[in-house]
Design a protein around this nucleic acid. Structure first.
Lengths: 122, 122
DNA sequence: CGGAATCCAGTATGATACTG
DNA sequence: CAGTATCATACTGGATTCCG
């Protein structure tokens, strides 16, 4: 065993894969939409706003596959499909919130830097 | 004033822009490479491994523009350009580390979920 | 050495139409 | 309602070449 400073099974590729998930355009917004309770497909679509049907389908499928979201089908007519944030998804949303707080707190300074940089016409 | 729960200047687009930066393929790896000290262009390239010249150039330029990294040119022959993590960049790296820790801690469970999901041939 | 410029492939995303 | 299928397009990232 030479992995003295990392828990067994830790894989950098897996970690950066999750980071890229966080950075994708819709995943986090969908997770946030589900934080306060279950929603159905078009409910999420309304809540997120701007997302296409296809991207919502894909995003939800990925989230379900990863165990972040649970999908429940009611065989009524018309059918109803309910999406609920699983514990893993809640946990992720809490962690991401810290990052979002950081971003909110520092975006002013970042925009300042950009203005200065652009003013110098690099 | 109706913005009772947000600091002035907070903008969701700015926040998700930063999240997408975190999720991009190279930004975080470059920041991590610089955490322990300054490095020159090809030093970062060696440290990160797998990054192309162009992507490193682009990534560094963006990081510099945002005030995460400082760039110092020494007009020697051949020229030397040193990159240093600015306080803002250090701050970001600390925040991202929490997310990386979460990812490392939960990727086992996520992989499990995926296997189960795929086994059911959805 | 530290880039800039160009070209190109793969993927992410969007719009639209159709289905059970 | 909750998707699937198809096409079009934009953006990301990689390879290569050239420059001060």
């Amino acid at each position: 065993m030479d992995m003295t400073d990392k828990p067994a099974g830790t894989d950098c590729r897996g970690v950066s894969e999750i980071l890229s998930r966080v950075g994708d355009k819709w995943t986090i917004q969908v997770v946030i939409a589900l934080r306060l309770g279950s929603l159905r497909f078009n409910g999420i679509k309304r809540e997120v706003g701007g997302i296409s049907q296809q991207m919502l389908t894909r995003t939800l499928k990925t989230l379900e596959r990863d165990g972040m979201v649970e999908r429940t089908v009611r065989h009524t007519t018309p059918p109803q499909v309910e999406y609920t944030l699983a514990p893993l998804g809640h946990s992720l949303s809490e962690t991401v919130r810290h990052l979002a707080d950081w971003a909110a707190a520092h975006q002013g300074r970042i925009k300042e830097h950009r203005s200065q940089y652009d003013a110098r016409q690099h």
